[in-house]
Amino acid sequence: MDQTDSVVVVEHLEKRYGSFVAIEDVSFVVERGEIFGILGPNGAGKTTAVECLQGLRHADGGNLRVLGLDPRHHAAEIRRRIGSQLQESALPDRIKVWEALDLFASVVPGGGDWRVALEQWGLDTKRNARFGSLSGGQRQRLFVALALVNDPEVVFLDEMTTGLDPASRRVAWDLIRRMQDRGTTVVLVTHFMDEAENLCDRLAILDDKRLIALDTPSGLISRHATKRRVLFSTDQPDLTWLDSSQHVTAVHRTRDRVEVEGTGPVLAFVAAALIEHGIAPTDLRVKGADLEDVYLSLTGTGRSD
């Protein structure tokens, strides 16, 4: 395989904390210019993986390359050329927003003007605010601005939208797309399905220290999600007859709201059965498979809503 355009190469990554295995035999490649998502439940090993790539932790086995360099031997050079937003880190409480940007910009000369980042990330009104006084979302945006201050070739964003309100999340997505338009490769760790589905060109799903799927979001959906859900409301107390309709695999009910799980043409069969029993709900609809279904069926975690 031609790897000249591979910004990140991970082959058989292994990482242990003492005797605890956090990552086992994970391999993937991130191509130049793509937005690559890493999705998975808490504790899956996502942070461990990206921190090994940034040379912040030492891999115990496997082969890693970032921009063609091995993080075990060239961590300093890698860190100068990448941007990094860590899941857990902080700044001194009393440092002002502009001071942090100015300081970090001075570490790697030749980056862009930090004043631009300040404005792009909506922090210009917070220029003189102290880090300790910022809200969770403002801190998060400052960290992303800091990650971009050296004009990196690839950025690692670890749960960057956690703690942002929905509106700021949309703004963040736009800015990530803008990073991509400028040619920056983005490695995005997230646990938000909509974020992964909307933003990522390709996705790696990690679960319990292993890679369990790797594809485009639509590829994952068409391959793994065959289930459909039919939703409607009714006050009819007894719906047991629905269980035996063709193509129905399960019926869930929460007070008036009913969710029927099934395959293929389940909608038509459910509709027919409802009419037959004298029920004509006005809100009958089918919900196509989405990434969340793929994720839940692959990781075996319970419904998170």
Binding site: L56, R79, R80, L86, E88, F104, V108, F143, L146, N150
Partner: peptide, 8 residues
């Protein structure tokens, strides 16, 4: 850790 990741 933040300093480290930013090459300080």
């Amino acid at each position: 850790k933040r300093f480290h990741a930013s090459s300080v």
